[in-house]
């Protein structure tokens, strides 16, 4: 066996061992989301928009959709038609973001409440039932009492979907059985033996 061959085996062996070293391209000098950066005062690489800046195409001009109000008053209307799809989305978002405190039934007995969070009002009380959709939008957006704002977690369209679902929950408690169709009644009996 030639000297040369042995050399090449040794070198390729060492190169193989080096395959574990991957620092230059592995950690590139860039800022992926939510990395730290000593340059900023809060040490975060993500910078908030300066006050008053609106990204192109993101101007929130629709008062109803983004504030829940029309001419400064809580709206009694939804900004878009409430379809079954909207309700399903609302159910999904409600169960994700609201049910921890408000409970899946909206009665204010969610798991976090059971663990000591002050109990919120039930959606089924007469005061809350009488509030217009815009009121709920305002609460989700700006918070209420001990409830923090959910504006950062839930998009405006989803907030409306949640409100539609809350309306469905409220309705579900007060529907006289006589007004149901035979099919719906059968379904009710099947689901609640």
């Amino acid at each position: 066996m030639s000297q040369r061959l042995i050399h090449s085996i040794v070198v390729s062996g060492l190169v193989l061992l080096l395959s574990g070293c991957h620092l230059d391209m592995y950690d590139q000098p860039k800022n992926p989301p939510l990395t730290s950066n000593a340059f900023s005062s809060d040490s975060s690489s993500a910078r908030p928009l300066p006050e008053g800046v609106v990204a192109r195409g993101h101007a929130r001009t629709d008062e109803l959709l983004y504030t829940g109000k029309t001419q400064g008053k809580f709206s009694v209307f939804f900004p878009f038609p409430v379809t079954e799809r909207v309700l399903r989305r609302g159910q999904d978002r409600f169960n994700t973001f609201c049910s921890p405190c408000h409970g899946r039934l909206g009665d204010g007995n969610g798991m976090i409440v059971q663990r000591g969070f002050p109990r919120p009002r039930s959606f089924h009380n007469d005061t809350l039932r009488a509030e217009p959709p815009g009121y709920y939008f305002d609460v989700i957006t700006n918070g209420f009492g001990r409830m923090y704002s959910y504006a950062a977690s839930v998009k405006p369209e989803d907030r409306w979907a949640i409100i539609a679902y809350i309306r469905a929950l409220q309705l579900s408690r007060r529907v006289p059985v006589e007004t149901l169709s035979p099919d719906e009644r059968a379904l009710l009996i099947r689901n609640n033996p």
Partner: peptide
């Protein structure tokens, strides 16, 4: 988000 609950519990 943490404080949403942990301001109270």
């Amino acid at each position: 988000t943490c404080m949403t609950c942990h301001s109270q519990i």
